[in-house]
Design a protein around this nucleic acid. Structure first.
Lengths: 219, 219, 219, 219
DNA sequence: AATGAATGAGACTTCATTCAT
DNA sequence: CATGAATGAAGTCTCATTCAT
């Protein structure tokens, strides 16, 4: 998975946010994300990060106080990015939008997140792999999820239930079932991409998944 | 998650298999699994494993040539155990059994695996977390999955399709959708257990999941 | 140089001396000598010695208090054996024997020691390699050499000088020159044997060496 | 033999060659050579090398990837240095020089090499002691010896034979006899130096040795 | 800002030796 | 006598971090 193109999230980090990043900072972050995704945080050495980034080892520590800082710089924003479309602000319009049915809403969300994730594979991989070991990340996730994202999603679900296009199950259950369906699809996509599997028919699978979810959750 | 009760898989390892394990070996394996689950393989030091197991560090290396050996001793059998019910031999009867419909089959499998996994949480956690980083484990997984498990599952699916109780989707797609539904349920269960969440109604969720799968995959 | 035949010195050790050796002791000594010759004393582990001898590691320490004991058991007698023909007792007759000239004496000694050394290569190798690092061995060597061997050799040399068949150089010088000639021959022989060199004509070289010594040291 | 003066070969290594050495590198090499000579490579610990060099243990490994690297850095060049005067280039003039007889040639070579060796005792000791255990060193020795040194020496010998100042023995035999004579002299010199022996008359012994060689190898 | 040599704590592993069986 | 599991000291080497340049 050694890949020299910068993933989009990095480009964004580079410009956006507080202080702009120098080119070297970007190279460091890119190299770190690369390595973390490949071998895991704990097995990646700062010296290898430095050499892959083409900078001196000391330079890393000028910009990031510790190795863990490096991880957090990568992973904390990742949580936000991943959940962005469900955040309070961005989601406002959706609530009042005219999605004909749950199915359409699903399709919109699924394609959008799939695109983000497959464009930022390494970022996603790091997040998934390191989340279990770093309380700071878990907290960050909880903090974004609980007050900002969950309520939004639950109210969308309730809206569709009220409109009669969704089974009257507990909203959290609906969410769980929907999420596992979509995550299952995304993971399969990633695995298929990793192995250049030819048996994988992208759109057919997407449609099957959405149809399955819609049918399974029909009232 | 410091827990002194031995998980069932360890008891089995202790007696079963080739050479019986001494008490110290068992303590080493238990301590290692504990730590690996908690902090990950790479961040667990052999010295901490030793002290948690109450043995000298050297003792570890008398029984397991390297630290990685320790991981493999834990994780390789885990793959088999996890997939055991789907293995060629054990599965034979299922194929000819009178499961009324896909739904019943699902319920049987789901409860069975859920039980195994929640009894062997640490084992399962180690496996999930280390699989991405250890090619040996991936290969072991592929070797059990591809020739021994997959064909079985696919033929069950085809049977139900032939009987008209399952939608005529590609069998692999059916498998994926089913698997993500069940894994989603199991993960939610584990997370809920970890946080002593009260909102979690075990049987209600199981039934909802199975109903959802059955409905979503109905012909 | 892995060789299962026992070298003669071992056979002798086995029977001769104080307490008779058990079979296991002999196997331990043989394995140790083997390994010491191959990798040196410091790089040979007692565990490898044990496994090569086919005994348990503990067994070694039942017979030899420490690893160093093992070395000394091998090497100390070796010094005696190597110098035996020049020792007080055995040498008595030589002093009065009718060796026509220094040349004949040389030939006798050279062939005799060459035979011993090439029959006990491993023993010799260990001695040569470990002597520099073990003061006990050096002392043992000095103790045998200085009072028991040197005087003998010097008086033989003086005898030949008196008889007019040897240059009137300082006896120690004669000894040094003679010794280096013979050692050079023996080392060349061993190296040639080690490499199955075909260019090596055993007897021709021996004769050349002796002729060279005799001529170089002629009065 | 703890000696703080740097032997000449180290001074040369320090400046000469590719990358210049820092002061710490030199101290590390010096300490290592010291210890290797004293206790042998296998019995010298990197921690003792570090403390004798006055650096942290980690520093050693910044400069030399492994302990063996340290040995090779010391020993490989040593082989070249030891054989330098017999190398193709440096030797060219000798072939056409007017050495009156083999005797003069011997005297030149012997004094030259004796001087080098006694100035670089530790280096020589390490080489002699470690050669048997390190195939890399043996190969390096063979590679310099066989194509670059041997042919030179043999042709010098042949030249003297043609001129009638050397016995018509096989050149390799002449070489062996000469070499053992000179090595015997050098070793005796070193031993005498080590023990402050007073019986040792440097020049008398050298002359005796050369006379002996010349006479022994006269036609 | 950037470097990279230096550090020392700590990682994994080996080993000679002991001791209960 | 023999075993081999157990030990803990010591070995080689890695690593995140610091600091003078």
């Amino acid at each position: 998975m050694m890949n020299d193109e910068r993933e989009p999230w990095l480009e964004e980090l580079l410009q956006g946010g507080e202080g702009k990043m120098t080119d070297k900072q970007a190279r460091i972050i890119a190299a770190a994300a690369d390595l973390f995704a490949e071998k895991g945080y704990a097995s990646s050495s700062t010296s290898e990060i430095a050499s892959r980034a083409g900078v001196a080892e000391g330079t890393i520590f000028r910009h990031y106080k510790t190795k863990k800082d490096l991880l957090l710089t990568i992973a904390k924003p990742a949580i936000i990015k991943l959940l962005a479309p469900f955040l309070l602000r961005e989601f406002k319009d959706v609530l009042h939008a005219r999605y004909g049915a749950y199915e359409e809403f699903l399709r919109a969300m699924a394609t959008n997140r799939l695109q983000f994730i497959s464009q930022n594979k390494r970022l996603f991989k790091v997040l998934l792999q390191e989340l279990p070991f770093h309380p700071e990340l878990q907290q960050q996730a909880r903090e974004t999820l609980m007050p900002l994202v969950l309520p939004q999603l639950l109210s969308v679900i309730r809206k569709f239930q009220d409109e009669g296009s969704l089974a009257p199950l507990p909203p959290l259950t609906v969410l769980r079932l929907t999420a596992s369906g979509i995550m299952g699809y995304i993971l399969a996509h990633l695995v298929a991409a990793d192995q250049n599997a030819d048996g994988w028919d992208e759109t057919a699978e997407l449609e099957a998944t959405i149809a399955f979810l819609a049918k399974g959750l029909a009232p």
